[in-house]
Design a protein around this nucleic acid. Structure first.
Length: 417
DNA sequence: TCTGGGGTCCTAGGACCC
DNA sequence: TCTGGGGTCCTAGGACCC
């Protein structure tokens, strides 16, 4: 049986959620804004048609909003997540295998459905989601994830369901598909490929694999392989546990005092630790970063600092202490900051890290080694590698003890117009 | 005046081990 | 003067995604 991969995509997701409660906004331009109402992060088709771009700052299209009476919403992520969960669980109940790819996308394995029935099946999914939740979705079906993405793209121009299985038909659609719109081809690869005369997905499909491998690494090689109908990305059913949790915000006004910054970082850490507990996980490292305004006058400053492995225990005050310590090392009193954030990194098995591991020995180095030993005795060598801990100990020693004033380098980037 | 937030994967090169 | 080599792990940075 031929493989059939469907990509389900929720149309203009955040806008569609808002419209559920405001049916009067159907067929009218709608925009959802980011944190602090900074820029557009979702647009209805009507708003797109007016030329409002993804990520465009609000102040730049404010005149359009007034002129065309565009409905504007601040974002409500709790609401969107709730809609997403409902839709995903419905879809999951309808197919044997599914991968939730993002808040508004899912890959479905439809291989078991006879080809002649696929279109009816997808139309039924679409209409059920619409009738149960009032949210419109689009479905594209093809041989691989990458091709399903292409099919999904065309589905939006038609009735919302598009099946692309026939080799000849695939080629004729790839021939019209701009390279820049292909899944996995971003700004940089687009620029390069265009310079090499490759402007459509079909030309990329026929490019020599070795050359692509050399120029675009395995990532590019996989795209070419998927365009040729060979799966390079399987459907990953189990939702993998996170490797990183980030909480960051831009400030409405620039922050100039350390106290304000510290207050923000503490709040971020609390939120991050909440997420961590939600995942039933522990972190082994805490990172803090601060940035000045990218668009402002003068040099752009962006600095990041990792706090000790000591922060591994799942105990909020410890995280806060570690974050404050990291912050104090990167803070420059004469700068005004636009953005700050915290990351919890290299999440570990909850049972691996216990606060007690850190209590019994005197020096940090010893603590780390002892942790390693305990973990390896308990879980075997692979749990936390010798090299990882040793390297971390080395790094920490170098940075924080041999060189107490260590911070990462200043970054002076060219001013962005 | 006002310019998002949260992720993943890959590679090069250094450090270290035996 | 000659100056191992294979393997693992880490970090930093790039590229991409929604």
């Amino acid at each position: 049986m031929m493989r059939k991969i469907a990509l389900v995509d929720i149309n203009n997701f955040y806008v569609s959620c808002e419209r559920v409660f405001r049916p009067d906004l159907w067929h009218k331009p709608v925009v959802v804004l980011s944190n602090n109402d900074g820029c557009a992060i979702a647009r209805s088709n009507e708003a797109k048609a007016l030329g409002i771009k993804m990520g465009e700052p609000y102040f730049k299209f404010k005149s359009l909003v007034e002129k065309f009476n565009i409905a504007v919403f601040s974002s409500n992520y709790t609401l969107y997540q709730d809609f997403s969960t409902r839709i995903m669980s419905f879809l999951k109940s309808q197919v044997p295998q599914m991968e939730i790819y993002s808040i508004d996308e899912a890959f479905l394995n439809l291989t078991d459905i006879p080809e002649a029935q696929v279109i009816t099946f997808c139309q039924r999914l679409k209409s059920q989601v619409w009738h149960q939740l009032g949210i419109p979705i689009s479905i594209g079906v093809s041989l691989t994830k990458t091709l399903a993405k292409v099919a999904n793209n065309y589905s939006k121009k038609g009735e919302g369901v598009f099946i692309l299985m026939d080799e000849k038909e695939i080629n004729s659609f790839l021939e019209r598909f701009p390279i820049a719109d292909l899944w996995g081809i971003g700004r940089n690869h687009t620029k390069y490929l265009l310079s090499q005369g490759i402007d459509t997905a079909l030309k990329l499909k026929r490019a020599p694999p070795k050359w692509i491998r050399q120029k675009m690494s395995v990532v590019g090689e996989r795209i070419v392989s998927e365009l040729n109908g060979h799966m390079a990305h399987e459907i990953e059913e189990a939702s993998a546990s996170k490797k990183m949790i980030t909480v960051s915000r831009s400030f409405a006004k620039d922050v100039t005092s350390y106290e304000e910054l510290e207050y923000a970082v503490c709040a971020f850490i609390e939120r991050a630790v909440e997420k961590l507990r939600g995942e039933q996980r522990l972190a082994s490292q805490v990172g803090v970063f601060i940035k000045t305004n990218r668009y402002g006058e003068g040099a752009y400053y962006s600095n990041y600092h990792l706090a000790e492995l000591e922060a591994a225990c799942n105990y909020t005050p410890t995280f806060i202490t570690a974050a404050k310590r990291a912050l104090s090392k990167i803070y420059k009193p004469y700068l005004s900051y636009k953005k700050a954030g915290v990351c919890l990194l290299e999440l570990s098995n909850p049972e691996s890290f216990q606060p007690s591991f850190f209590k019994s020995s005197s020096s940090r180095q010893e603590q780390l080694m002892q942790t390693l030993d305990t973990l390896n005795k308990r879980y075997g060598k692979r749990t936390v590698s010798y090299g990882a801990i040793k390297q971390a100990a080395h790094t920490i020693t170098q940075r924080q003890f041999l060189s107490p004033h260590y911070t990462t380098e200043w970054k002076d980037l060219p001013k962005v117009k």
